[in-house]
Every structure is written in C-alpha cells, then in structure tokens.
Design a protein around this nucleic acid. Structure first.
Length: 637
DNA sequence: GCGATCAGAT
DNA sequence: CACATCTGATCGC
C-alpha cells in the first residue's frame, strides 16, 4: 500500500553493491523431453552455450545472495562502479559518442540484422542480447520464406502471424518472457525446453497454466541482475500487469538494450538507477500500443477513484435494490479496479476458475482475502472482458436474477476514454478509462528521457502485422546531451508532493507500481507546494515547513552524522534543484529533515550536494524522488 | 484421443 | 478499431 505513488527503488550504490550477479547454468540437456528435431537443435545450442559461459564465470564476480551493507562500499567489488566514477566515464563516453566495441562482433550477429528482423515483430517474447541471439519471436530468427508449415499458411494471409512463428526459434538459446498475457506467450507449450527467464509471478503462471518443466524456468526479480552468457540482464518493473517486467540487457561489448515488453511509462522509471548508470542506451524496443496523440490517460489511481465514485453513486441511487456488479478483466491485469471496489463496498469477489487460479498465482494476499469460490456469496463478479456487453450481461443476469434486482457491468479499459455509462432498468454498464499501457505523452516522455540511439516499436500498425509503428525521431534524435545528463534539466519536486496517494487501497505485500504523476493535480496544487526546493543549504526544510504532509525535523542533522551518506541519489540535480530518489536505507536510522550528501554530476565533474530526508517510513528513507513532471513539460514543448 | 495450432469472434 | 483472450475446427502424433 505504501508503494502507491512511489516506487521502491534502491539508491544507486545500493543497486551497484547488491546487484545479484548470478551465473545461470547451461540449458539442461533436452534429451527425454524433446522431439527428435528439438533434440538436435537443443544439443547444438547447449554446446555453443557451454563454450561461451565458461570464461564469463571468471570475468564476472559472482555474488549470490550476499547481504549488502552500505558501509562496506569501501572496497567495491570488481565489475562494480561507484556512482562518481560512473558519471565521470559516462559523460566522457557520451562526448566521444562511443560506439559498441568490436569485441562482440565475432560471436554476435550484427545488430543490424537483428534490427532488420525485429522490425517485423509484434511484441511477444522478449528479445535477448546478441551473445546468445535470443529472441523468442520466431520471425526474428526465421524470415518468412524459411517458414515451414505451408499448408495453412499458404492460404492467403501472408502477413498473418501464427503460432508457428513462435516457440522454438532457430539459433535462440535463451528466452525472456515479460509477462503472462496470451499474445506474448504464443508458442510456449509444455514441451518448451530452453531456459526461460521470467518474474516469480510469471513463473508461477507459466508453471500452472502451461506446465513448462520447472527445470527451464529461471526467475528474475525486479531490479535483479543476472549474467547470462556474459550478458548482464536486469529486470525492471514494467507497470503493466502483475509480474510484468522490462528487460535491460548489457552486452559484453557494453552495448545496452532495453526491451520494455508491455509497459506503462512513468516518471518514476526515470529514477531507476540502471538508467542513470547507463546513460547511453543503444537500442530500445518499445511498446507503442497507444502511440497516437488521441490517447491521454489519467493516472490509474484516478481510474480507480472514478470506478469507486460511479459505483457508489449507482448503489446510492438504487439503495433499495440488490445489485450484482460484474467487472471485466483479463486473466491477469485490472485487479486494482475490482480490488478497490471489493474493499470499498465490502464485497466478496467471485471470478471464473481460470482467473481464480491465476489470482492465486499472484500471491497478492488482498486479492485472496476478497475472493470466494461461491458466486452466490459474491456481489462482485470478475469475468472476461468480452462478457461486459449488454447482450452478454442480459444472459448473465438470468443466472442470478433470483438473487439480484440489477446488474452493473464495468469495463476498465484504455478504450473507454470517452464512453458514457448506460443505465438501464435492470442492466447497466459503465466504462472506466483504465490503461496498463503508456499514453502518448508517457511514451514520449519515456523515450525523451532515455534518448536511445535507436528505437524499434514492437507493436504492429495496420493490417500487416509485420510492420510496427514508427517512433517519432524527434523523441530521441534531438540536439544536446542525453536527457539524463542534460545541463538544461531542471527538475522540481512539486508534482511529486502533489501526487495523490491511495495508500489504503492496495496490498502491501505485493509491490504494485503506480505511476504517480498526475499532471493536472500537480498544476492545481501549485499554490500550496513549493515549485522548487533548494538543496544547497541545510535550511532546505524551510521549503516544507508549511507543507503539513511532510514531516520536518527542526534540527537537520549534518552530513557528518551519516557516515554512509555516500549512498548517493541517482539523479542529475543541477544547481539548486534535485529530483527525488526514493532511497531504501535499512541500516541507518534517519529522521525527517536529515541531510544527506548525494554525489551528482555537474558537467563532467562530480559534486556533492545536500538533499533532505523528506519522509521516513519503516526505517526506510523516502527522499529525493524522480524527475518531476514540470521538467517533462519543458521537454515536450 | 488429446495436444497443438488455426481462423475467426468478441 | 482493439487492450487479450476464447471458441470451435482441424491437424497430426
């Protein structure tokens, strides 16, 4: 619950030091499980993989489950970099416009080739890195003319994507699945026999629904880094459905590739240390589902509020009636809406058995606590989205008309932007604008923030599913330095302070990630909230003095009180302003108002600057957060 | 017979 | 339209 409106990220030093670098084992031999064909392919791959993996174990430090104490930073482990040294090199790299070195060329397919292939892809399984040529999208590895299964394919639709396009792809040895939505795991079957990297949540779903042999499933958690065949793979929260990840690949050549999977971009993502530690992203695979100016969604918490508001109004207006509420959903996704309704109106929830199974896989206690097996004891039913139409609901209502007088159907969807509620005598439906993909603005901001060298959309446009969208080049080919290191960047914290919080609504046990920026709210609150906060003096807390929500200690502690204060904020604070970074400080006791000294980049030098502890929760410091929306507005001019 | 795959529907 | 399935038909081991 406390994660709503903010994300739990680790300070850069924390990330650097706690980075769990594990060397994954080779894909197990596939002998018994595979068909003859697979066997052959599998063996070949194992052989080549084994060759590659060996030297890597030497080159990379292996720190498995090493508990990290910030104070131990004095001796950075090999391969780790302190924030200050990072920024020095990063700035330098940027200036010389470094290109990936040639070291990887010998083993890796050329990037251009992958690009070529990737241009034809819909987003499905995730692209890996060149060292092990992992893409899970068959089209990436097999040009159309090489495809087998002519019998059905030949019948016309050249552009159609079928399951034969996915799954076992020639030359691909490692697979990354961002999340458990059906259009992303096409081709994944029980017989799958390659390493598959997924979040723990997705792992449970894959095991439960597809019954992939657990031998092949490798879990990677949010913010965790694994080394796979010499490629550093870091999982990032995607802010999509439960368990959804983005994958950040750093090749041995230094080349960085981010695959967003399906995601909803958020200003919080701009605080992710990995982006600050890797200012140069060579290639971005981007979910451009709503890359159209017409799509401008409200924050999810607003959607939830609206759903609650409309349902309350409906209930009050029909106070004498027995009302069945039916909410549309996918197998996973949209839980926040129905959970909020269940809690707000103290309703039990019944859902179809497949979703019920899926929900159990989520290990989200709040969801479990409201679910019931018996539809007749639940006033809230969660059903597949397709059933939330008037004719379907009429049918549905007949099943329960002995128990209810009215039925209210709810459609939470990005497409419900301007839909009007339809109130009938017995059957009513309302649409709730609710998106788990980025809005146009969120996309633009995300791309501008990352300023990758190249962007490839993963979402097809039009009829030809092999053609994906064109991301506006001005989003990333603009003058100046990468936005993360931009000298012109002047973030403020006002939007963060104005972020509406729905603290009580969501589970505390599952880290739900909500993008907190709500532009109009922050604008409307400008009177109350300081536009900028000086962090150069220890009198910073003055800025908050009138902000009742921000606890302030009168006597700010000096930096000498924090011997470990080199846990630096990953930000580019310039001059007198600093973006927030939420820091996770478990081993220190800090009070609100305390002053920390983060190192921040100033041109090519590192300078220290002070920042305030704004909020403390459970021994964790919530402080300097992300880049504020005001700054983004400037970019978007 | 059943899992995998496909086309089409919502 | 389509966000992501879902269904019913067909293929093929």
């Amino acid at each position: 619950m406390s994660n709503v409106g903010k994300i739990k990220i680790k300070a850069i030093a924390d990330l650097q030091a706690t980075i769990r670098i594990n060397v994954e084992p080779d894909p197990p031999p596939t002998t018994e499980k595979s068909t003859p064909k697979q066997k052959k392919a599998g063996r070949a791959r194992v052989a080549s993989t084994a060759k590659k993996i060996q030297p890597k174990a030497e080159a990379c430090p292996i720190i498995v489950g090493t508990p990290f104490k910030r104070s131990s930073k004095k001796t950075p482990l090999p391969g780790q970099m302190r924030i200050d040294s990072f920024f020095k090199s990063a700035v330098k790299n940027y200036k010389v416009n470094m290109v990936p070195n040639s070291a990887s060329k010998t083993v890796d397919p050329p990037l251009d080739k992958r690009k070529e292939n990737s241009r034809r892809r819909k987003r499905l399984f995730e692209e890996s890195t060149t060292t092990f040529s992992a893409s899970t999208d068959k089209r990436d590895a097999k040009p159309p003319e090489k495809r087998v299964q002519p019998s059905r394919r030949a019948k016309g639709k050249e552009n159609a994507i079928t399951e034969s396009d996915f799954g076992d792809i020639d030359g691909v040895t490692h697979y990354f699945l961002t999340h458990f939505h059906a259009d992303h795991y096409i081709g994944l079957t029980k017989k799958f026999c390659y390493p598959l990297y997924v979040s723990p949540t997705t792992a449970r779903l894959v095991q439960t629904f597809i019954k992939v042999d657990t031998t092949y499933i490798h879990e990677i958690e949010v913010d965790q880094t694994l080394v796979v065949n010499g490629v550093q793979v870091t999982a990032l929260e995607a802010n999509h459905c439960p368990g959804a990840l983005m994958f950040f690949f750093k090749l041995s050549s230094g080349e960085c590739i981010l695959h967003t999977g399906d995601f909803r971009g958020s200003a919080d993502m701009e605080s992710l240390p990995i982006f600050w530690n890797h200012a140069n992203i060579d290639l971005l695979y981007l979910d451009t589902t709503y890359m159209n100016k017409n799509y401008d969604f409200c924050h999810q918490s607003e959607s939830v509020d609206r759903a609650v508001y409309l349902v309350r109004a409906f209930i009050e207006k029909n106070a004498s009636k027995r009302i069945l509420i039916v909410c549309g959903s996918y197998v996973i996704g949209k839980e926040k809406i129905w959970l909020a309704l269940a809690k707000e109106f103290t309703m039990k929830v019944w859902t179809e058995s497949n979703r019920s199974t899926a929900v159990r896989c989520l290990k989200w206690p709040d969801l479990d606590s409201v679910l019931t097996e018996d539809p007749r004891e639940a006033n809230l039913h969660v059903v597949t989205m397709g059933k939330i139409s008037y004719p379907s609901l009429v049918d549905y209502f007949t099943l329960f008309e002995d128990q209810y007088d009215m039925l209210l159907g709810i459609r939470p969807s990005g497409w419900e932007k301007n839909s009007k509620p339809s109130y009938g005598k017995r059957i009513s439906t309302i649409g709730i604008e609710y998106s788990e993909h980025s809005s146009y603005k969120e996309l633009e901001r995300f791309v501008r923030f990352l300023k990758p060298k190249r962007v490839i959309s993963t979402v097809p446009v039009g009829r030809n599913l092999f053609v994906t969208g064109d991301v506006p080049t001005q989003w990333y080919k603009y003058e100046g330095r990468a936005s993360m290191l931009s000298t012109g960047y002047q973030p403020s914290i006002s939007a963060f302070l104005a972020t509406p919080k729905r603290v009580a609504t969501f589970s505390s046990d599952i880290e739900m990630f909500l993008s907190p920026v709500q532009e109009n709210v922050s604008k409307g609150s400008k009177d109350k909230i300081p536009d900028h906060v000086s962090i150069m003096s220890s009198t910073m807390e003055e800025s908050f003095r009138n902000e009742s929500e921000i606890p302030v200690k009168n006597e700010p502690l000096g930096p000498e009180s924090f011997p470990n204060s080199e846990i630096v904020a990953g930000n580019n604070a310039m001059e007198s302003e600093i973006p927030y970074v939420e820091m996770d400080i478990k081993n220190e006791t800090l009070d609100p108002g305390a002053v920390l000294i983060p190192c921040v980049p100033m041109e090519d030098k590192i300078q220290s600057t002070e920042c305030n502890v704004i909020e403390v929760q459970k021994g964790e410091v919530v402080l300097v957060s992300r880049l504020a929306s005001d700054a983004a507005d400037d970019w978007l001019l």
